[in-house]
Design a protein around this nucleic acid. Structure first.
Lengths: 342, 342
DNA sequence: GAACACAATGAGATCGATCTCATTACGCTA
DNA sequence: TAGCGTAATGAGATCGATCTCATTGTGTTC
């Protein structure tokens, strides 16, 4: 394949001049510039970014690691990141960790060897992450996405998970619910799940209600109704459930209806994430919307700022409670025996 | 940052020997190998892939372009591709085109400059794609995903869209439906949409039924019920609808139910893709499953074969019809006036 | 101990750009 | 036309590895 040297020869100039034709055309005589460009065209010259990267010690590539692309919340965020990155002249190397610390480690090492200019990571557990400890010693700019900014060294882009779930909880309380439960995926100890549960607990306690332990589901994307069934039966059963993500909520609604229960008649269900699809379901999903597209943009902007040497301290992004049809007012027939009276 | 030269110096060997310690340790005396590795450890040496890539003229990176990550069918496929690629020691550069030919062009040019070892593309229209015409002159191995293998030059990974939609149509016919319509996204002319419509038409005609034109929706992910309403009313209205993708189907089901209609009572709905979520909805989605995870694996395997210089001719991947609850037998009350009688 | 085969190591070119610094060319004024 | 300042261009080093080929070192055999 044609390289700059061959272009330079054909145009009758030196490599340096040929290079300038691309990087700073204004420093060349118009005629020289034209000759070089013509030679490049004739030879089908295509600049080699690898060589540029080696020489300039900048790859203009960002490494992105998300737990999974099966959850639209990550896919939608990635979509926004890709667009923002490309607009800024950067490419993304995309990887999935499956929440596996071993894979996280290997992926990050690989990306460092690739000399990415920056890393945007979503890890399982930011404050006990081996990979973050390692990165602390490295000079590659690094940004957390979704993870709370517990690690003092790394800026973080995400919503205030605790406040967001507290909002959702208060919303259900305002709808008249008193017996409210919460379900989550298999990583109960994940930093976000923990914060969300704390938000739930605080809102419950602030209202004089009893928070329950997080009910663990075997998968992030699918409920096992059997794990929840005990909490649902009888007059003392739950009347509303908060889910740590939308996929769980959607799956829960499906299972409930398949088992003959109605939503929100028998149980109000709230999601978390605000994936696009939730709007179009019936009943439409009541959920806490994380602004995923903005996540992506802000993540890239912040990472680029870090790369430029700035020390941005991004604020938590605002979450929005989207009222759908899956959570509603508590039917009179299911009012708690003891009325709420502060 | 430490480079091989500094490692070599510290270990008291030449660069060549230091390099061999990593690439072919067996060719070194154990003692020499140990000294080099120790020096590397002390200096925190991390091999520079950019330099390796320049020198070996192989990046071990694959360029992936999909229309969008907002549709789980692409996200799930990408997830599988990433795992397969990483298992083979390759990284993915991921981009989204939004079906925009201009962006397709820019993205591919960018990836060629990056000297990716191979490209896996999903384009809007394989047989009139400017970007594919350009790629035909290039030596970079290229694979189409989802696009039918119309372009003689490029292998393609995907299901047989025509046969798949014909199967779905026959399924509905077998359920007693006679007035069956089909809806699609804004790209009626997309190669896949066209093939799927052809499959539908053939199956209809083979059964002596009248196929209808594809009803165009303004977006890929969301129906506008108003566009469909005219076809639904009265005793002559449709009793079943095929959708070109699952998101449309899910959105359609939601809209129908919200407007007071039941699914499949008033209208049977079939999707296409088989995204995971469809299983968990209520009613669960009847759909044609494209094996997305297998797509990803096969795509990577085929592309790696191309890179090795083989000329694989991948077969269409098998599709599976998944019977859900959104499509059912035609109620007796809605039997067509003229019974089907070949 | 000399000769030889083979293993281990080193020297230097190379991949394809960029960048600095030196040199040449050009335009302007006197 | 000479002199000068600036614009335009070129020569060569450099980024960090790999690879070929030459050389040195080691061990075996007679």
């Amino acid at each position: 394949m044609a390289n700059l040297l061959s272009v330079a020869k054909l145009a009758g100039v030196s490599r340096a001049t040929a290079a300038r034709a691309f990087s700073s055309p204004e420093s060349l005589r118009p005629e020289t510039h034209r000759r070089v460009m013509e030679a490049a065209r004739v030879l089908g010259f295509r600049p080699n970014k690898v060589a540029q990267q080696l020489r300039t010690r900048a790859t203009r590539m960002l490494g992105v690691m998300v737990p999974s692309l099966d959850n639209p919340v990550f896919a939608e965020q990635l979509q926004a990141m890709e667009e923002a990155a490309r607009a800024a002249g950067y490419s993304l190397i995309v990887t999935t960790s499956g929440y596996d610390p071993g894979r996280e480690e290997a992926i990050v090492e690989e990306m460092l060897r690739q000399r990415v200019d920056g890393l945007a990571l979503t890890v399982a557990e930011a404050d006990h992450s081996a990979v973050l400890v390692k990165l602390r010693r490295e000079s590659t700019p690094c940004l957390l996405v979704h993870n709370p900014p517990v690690a003092p060294c790394f800026p973080s882009v995400g919503v205030d998970n605790r406040a967001a779930m507290a909002d959702a909880t208060r919303y259900l309380i305002a709808q008249g619910h008193r017996r409210i439960g919460m379900i989550g995926g298999p990583l109960l100890q994940s930093d976000r799940a923990r914060l969300r549960h704390e938000g739930y607990r605080e809102a419950m306690e602030a209202a004089g209600l009893t928070p329950l332990a997080l009910i663990e589901m075997p998968r992030h994307t699918q409920v096992a109704l059997s794990r929840l069934a005990p909490a649902l039966g009888g007059t003392e059963g739950l009347t509303a459930v908060l889910c740590t993500n939308d996929l769980l909520a959607i799956s829960l609604i499906g299972e409930l209806r398949r088992s003959g229960r109605s939503v929100p008649g028998d149980l109000s269900v709230m999601g978390f994430d605000g994936i696009e699809l939730g709007r179009h379901l019936y009943p439409s999903l009541s959920t806490v919307v994380q602004p995923r597209a903005e996540f992506g943009r802000v993540a890239v902007d912040t990472l680029l700022a870090l790369i430029r040497g700035a020390t941005p301290q991004p604020l938590p992004l605002p979450h929005v409670l989207r009222e759908g049809e899956s959570a509603g007012a508590l039917p009179a027939s299911r009012q708690a025996p003891e009325p709420y009276d502060p």
